[in-house]
Simulated assay, not measured.
Amino acid sequence: MTKTRLNVDIYSDIACPWCFIGKRRFEKAVAALPFGENIDVKWHAFQLDPSAPEHFEGSGADYFVKEQGMPAEQIEGMLEHVSAQAAAEGLSFDMASVRPTNSFTALRLLALAKERDLGAAMKEALLSAHFEKGVDTGSRQALQRIADSVGLDPLESAEVLAGEKYAEAVRADGIRGRELGVSGVPFFVLEDRYGISGAQPSEVFEQALRQVWDEISAETESLKLISSVSPDGEACGPEGCS
């Protein structure tokens, strides 16, 4: 019997600009495919910088200079490049207003949203808040407002924000990702067969999805080790964003 669903696991962080850009490019590819409605996406947490402070007084550029030791000129060029790529995908990044923060609490809240079938809405809301609206996504008050806006139960989300619920789920996602060889995000795993690294152009996603769809439609049973179907795309890693 022909399989009619294509599973895609996406590892990403809400504090990663290329994760937002890659999300848009991937969505564009899915929308262009005749079998797009048969693609099941599952988001996984992959925290890039667990050591990041919960709050940082200063801009994103300040953070990379002070905490990562990156030259100011390199950071300026990086932020300009990211903003231009985001704009090409219809995103309005405001990199000057981005509030550097530790994403762990936001990822725990996202885990709750996924359990309540609100993961897609929460993922979008968190990314937009962080990169387009200058929201401090490390602030529990701000996260509560985002949770309310997507329809999460206020008491339930408040309980998550006040404690450590879903901490192990977030850590487990990161461990699984590293076992698969993920070192930067976004990272896309198609049917546990192929990995796509970085925010590839939509055409690359579309080609890869068609390839895997053809394989599973033909009832190809031999699973392959996860391997890259393209050169690495632009992504964020522990040392910063390319």
Rank of each mutant, 00 (worst) to 15 (best):
K3H: 09
S97L: 14
D49L: 01
N102L: 00
A208K: 11
C19V: 02
D136I: 01
Q141V: 12
E215M: 07
E76P: 04
E73H: 06
S202M: 07
G174T: 02
S51C: 00
R176E: 11
F187I: 01
V185P: 02
M70P: 06
A72V: 14
D94T: 11
E203W: 03
F64N: 05
A142I: 03
F104W: 05
S227H: 15
A87M: 08
E239W: 05
G237W: 01
G22T: 10
S139M: 06
M70S: 11
A113P: 08
F188T: 15
A125I: 06
G151K: 14
D49W: 01
Q144Y: 08
D117Y: 14
T105C: 03
R5H: 07
A147R: 09
Q211D: 09
D13I: 00
S92L: 07
Y194L: 10
I21R: 04
K23N: 09
S139T: 05
G174F: 06
R140Q: 15
A45R: 03
V98L: 02
D49M: 04
K42C: 08
V182I: 14
I10G: 12
V229M: 14
S59D: 10
H44V: 05
D136W: 03
W213L: 05
A52L: 00
D94H: 14
G174H: 02
P34V: 13
K3V: 09
C16E: 01
S197K: 11
S222A: 15
V189N: 09
D117M: 08
F64K: 05
F131M: 02
S228A: 15
S128K: 12
L107I: 01
I75L: 15
P17N: 06
V204A: 12
D9H: 10
H44L: 12
I196F: 02
E215T: 12
E206W: 04
Q47P: 00
S51I: 00
K3E: 12
F46C: 00
H130P: 08
A72Q: 11
M1F: 15
G163H: 11
L143N: 04
A172C: 05
I14S: 00
N102C: 01
M1H: 15
R25L: 10
D173L: 08
L6G: 03
R193S: 14
N7E: 15
P17Y: 06
S59A: 10
N7V: 09
L161F: 04
G184T: 08
D192K: 13
L112A: 04
R140F: 05
S12E: 05
Y194G: 05
V98M: 05
Y166M: 05
S59H: 07
T2S: 13
S227R: 15
G184Y: 01
S227N: 13
V150E: 11
E80Y: 09
G177E: 01
I196H: 04
C241S: 12
R193W: 13
P17M: 05
F56D: 00
L109A: 12
N102Y: 00
P100N: 03
A31R: 09
I196V: 14
